[in-house]
């Protein structure tokens, strides 16, 4: 896959519009989904996606060689959104600690097993996810939404391997605690999945 990616990226760097549009097409959905999840703002996300692609095209001849295009773009988007949101919160005199900048809300529609579980179970899972820190939710989002590997998540979030594992592990502990009681019912129901 990276062979193809490398080829696409080098074509884009040489000014190939088709290659550039192909990169745009194949990453738009994931970029929008992720951007919208972490910012909670659809218009802002769409604007920032346009900006980063315009930016890329203007800098095409000097931009780095990229193997994992998706992770590169997600990181780019994350940084751009962070800058915008920080500026906005500062102007409103709000806390701009990075940990609290992103909200990462997860709704019932997001759950893959929505149709296999009861409303009650659905509420419990969402509660459990809501009680995690925004950073934990973001990592869960990257890991279990887009199936990115640990290396890519490290690149995007700038966490090192150990803190990434620790964060995910802590998330797991709290999830288990919250879901412990109903996990038995749960087992019976989705065992057939």
């Amino acid at each position: 896959m990276s062979g193809e990616n490398l080829n696409l990226w080098s074509l884009f760097k040489k000014g190939d519009k088709d290659a550039f549009l192909k990169i745009y097409h194949s990453n738009y959905e994931i970029l929008y989904s992720y951007g919208f999840k972490i910012s909670g703002n659809s218009d802002l996300t769409r604007d920032v996606i346009q900006e980063i692609f315009a930016d890329l095209w203007e800098k095409k001849s000097t931009v780095a060689d990229v193997v994992h295009i998706k992770a590169y773009l997600l990181k780019y988007l994350r940084r751009a959104l962070l800058t915008k949101i920080t500026a906005e919160k500062k102007s409103q005199g709000l806390n701009t600690n990075e940990e609290n900048l992103f909200e990462v809300s997860i709704s019932p529609e997001d759950l893959l097993i929505k149709n296999q579980i009861s409303k009650e179970q659905e509420r419990k899972i969402l509660d459990a996810l809501a009680q995690l820190s925004p950073r934990q939710r973001e990592i869960i989002y990257l890991k279990f939404f887009d199936e990115l590997d640990y290396q890519a998540i490290q690149d995007i979030t700038s966490l090192n391997y150990q803190s990434l594992r620790n964060t995910l592990h802590k998330a797991l502990q709290s999830l288990r605690k919250i879901l412990a009681i109903q996990i038995i019912f749960f087992l019976l129901i989705i065992n057939r999945l």
């Binding site: 989904s33 759950l111 893959l112 996810l129 939404f145 999830l175 288990r176 879901l179 996990i183």
Partner: peptide
Amino acid sequence: KLIQSISLNKV
């Protein structure tokens, strides 16, 4: 089950 319960759909 834990992994399945937190797996998410695409937007």
